[in-house]
């Protein structure tokens, strides 16, 4: 039985704030910031958007492509580090709104930016084990960066949803490899508003080590090499990290270029590698192979590979594409940004 993606969908809020605007407010050099991160602008959620609403909009697109009934879903897992409630699941709202359940397994997951792909992995396992026919896995976030912190240039909002199943798949999931250690490069304590990070420590021992080990592990396990893939998708905390990791693994600029979605919408955390994947699926052709590697601080990576099937052709145009959301943008200034993000004390 080949397990894979039956339907997928993206959602990105329409507000954007440019790196130039953030740099202007904090007296930083816009060119240095923009070139250092390769982020031109990032998405900002409207005042009435959160991880739940983003998850639902992305899932609606996934259902349009999957063409299955909500009641056929046996599991809903939402990976996010910005669930609106500390206690009370996001997934119940998402399931109820989509007409899923009540006979369904629902749980929210969290592993910094990695929980979206891990939710996909769990669904794969359940389908493969025969416990469920279809699972809905979502990676979505409305992440927050402390005002003035470097994170403020990247912490963005968006998400992607995937319906995982064993029939009529548009991309088979062919292999999986996870790599996890206890490496505290980024964290947010319970009850705290903003996360903290260990600055340059987030690079080599954290992002690069876990991403590289997961990729190498996956390629070793599957016997695939970089040239076998048409696309290599990575977690995109900024534009530089995925390009650097990809190149050192032997991928070309062409295979990596979709990761630069981050330069237009910022780092959507749990939604990041899932959104790049949705962007790739929007244009992928049957037979093409895709490698996806997420990264979540704390720290761990999932690396998995997919093969696109014939069925994708009839699904791609059934819902709004990722780039449609990217193109539908309204630029806002820093004042509007802090108002929308609730950063003004009232």
């Amino acid at each position: 039985m080949s397990v894979g993606i039956v339907g997928y969908g993206a959602y990105v809020p329409r507000f954007r704030i440019t790196s130039r605007e953030i740099a202007r407010v904090w007296g930083q050099d816009p060119k240095t910031m923009q070139e250092g991160l390769l982020i031109e602008e990032k998405s900002v959620p409207d005042i009435d958007e959160d991880t739940i609403t983003i998850s639902i909009e992305a899932s609606k697109n996934a259902f349009l492509r999957a063409g299955i009934r909500p009641k056929e879903i046996g599991a809903v897992y939402i990976g996010s580090e910005s669930h609106p409630y500390a206690v009370k699941p996001s997934g119940t709202v998402v399931a109820e709104a989509l007409g899923i359940g009540p006979e369904v397994s629902v749980v929210d997951t969290e592993f910094a930016c990695r929980a979206g792909t891990t939710s996909m992995f769990i669904c794969c396992g359940l389908v493969k084990a025969g416990y469920i026919n279809y699972g809905l896995a979502i990676g979505a976030d409305t992440s927050q960066g402390m005002p003035g912190d470097a994170l403020e240039y990247s912490a963005a909002a968006g998400g992607a949803a995937f319906i995982i199943g064993g029939k009529n798949v548009i991309a088979t999931i062919d292999g999986w490899f996870s790599f996890v250690t206890d490496t505290a490069d980024f964290w947010r304590r319970d009850g705290q508003e903003y996360p903290r990070h260990a600055a340059r420590f987030t690079g080599e021992p954290s992002y690069f080590r876990h991403v590289m080990e997961a990729c190498k592990g996956l390629m070793g396990k599957t016997g695939l090499k970089p040239s076998d893939f048409s696309y290599a998708v990575f977690h995109t905390p900024n534009g530089k990290f995925p390009l650097k990791a990809g190149k050192s693994l032997g991928f070309t600029g062409e295979q990596l270029k979709d990761n630069l979605l981050v330069s237009k919408i910022g780092n959507t955390y749990s939604g990041a590698s899932p959104l790049v994947l949705s962007c790739v699926l929007d244009k992928a052709k049957p037979g093409e192979k895709i490698m996806v590697t997420s990264y979540g601080s704390g720290a761990g990576s999932d690396s998995f590979c997919l093969t696109v099937t014939e069925d994708i052709k009839s699904k791609q145009d059934k819902a709004r594409k990722t780039m449609d959301y990217v193109a539908d943008r309204e630029e806002i200034d820093y004042a509007r940004y802090v108002r929308l993000r609730g950063k003004i004390k009232q």
Binding site: D46, I47, D48, E49, D50, I52, T53, I56, E57, K60, P84, Y85, V93, A97, D328
Partner: peptide, 25 residues
């Protein structure tokens, strides 16, 4: 239709969700 937050009872209260509308492109 588009799914959004409708109303929050308070910062520590329940969040009410529901449908809003968006102009079709």
């Amino acid at each position: 239709p588009v799914f959004r937050k409708i109303y929050e009872d308070s910062d520590d209260g329940i969040i009410h969700y529901g449908m809003k509308f968006v102009i079709d492109g």
